[in-house]
């Protein structure tokens, strides 16, 4: 099963490689990983999308916790959270298809961020399903290139990411 894990880490050099090294060294897989500074400049937030059964996820979460620079691990799966991803798509747009591309972008509430005589570059933000949908629609019109950010996620409501206690410290 797919899991979205939010990891609060110390904002120090080498932390990303400790985390990614842990995944590769133990044979866990990463579908996407994003990382950037939080409101506290000494900490960074990683959002990792991974896959595995319950036992593997338990190990991932415990092993992450074991890293000295990891402050908090929070598996958001099964909890109420908002997740978003952004994609930049460069799509061929010649005479016959220019209007069609714009219509699709409009339906998805996307933005055109760059225009050339033969292409549009568009920006779409949404959950994974939305991005997959527009990509599928644009494919027949010829996607020249695309870049995805990977998911970021945050719990709904008042809870902040610190709130949810990590389960393994309470066994």
């Amino acid at each position: 099963m797919r899991h979205v894990i939010s990891v609060l880490v110390e904002n120090e050099p080498g932390v990303l490689s400790r985390v990614s090294g842990l995944f590769s060294g133990r044979g866990f897989n990463i579908e996407s990983l994003t990382v950037a500074e939080t409101i506290d400049p000494t900490a960074s937030r990683m959002t990792i999308v991974t896959r595995g059964d319950d036992q593997i996820l338990e190990q991932i979460s415990k092993q992450l916790n074991k890293l000295i620079n990891v402050i908090k691990v929070n598996d958001l799966t099964g909890k109420s959270f908002v997740n978003r991803e952004m994609v930049l798509i460069k799509v061929a747009a010649e005479d016959a298809t220019r209007a069609e591309v714009l219509r699709i972008v409009d339906i998805f509430r996307g933005k055109v961020v760059d225009v050339s005589p033969k292409s549009y570059t568009i920006e779409i933000t949404g959950d994974e399903g939305k991005l997959e949908a527009i990509i599928d629609l644009l494919k027949p019109l010829r996607i020249i290139d695309l870049v995805r950010t990977g998911q970021v996620a945050i719990p709904r409501g008042k809870k902040d990411l610190q709130y949810v206690k990590n389960h393994d410290k309470n066994i």
């Binding site: 036992q55 338990e58 190990q59 074991k66 393994d168 066994i171």
Partner: peptide
């Protein structure tokens, strides 16, 4: 003392960290 050792290889009935 190491939570990662628990339920890594064998599922246990009473884990104690």
């Amino acid at each position: 003392i190491d939570p990662t050792s628990i339920s890594k290889n064998v599922q246990v009935d009473i884990p104690i960290v």
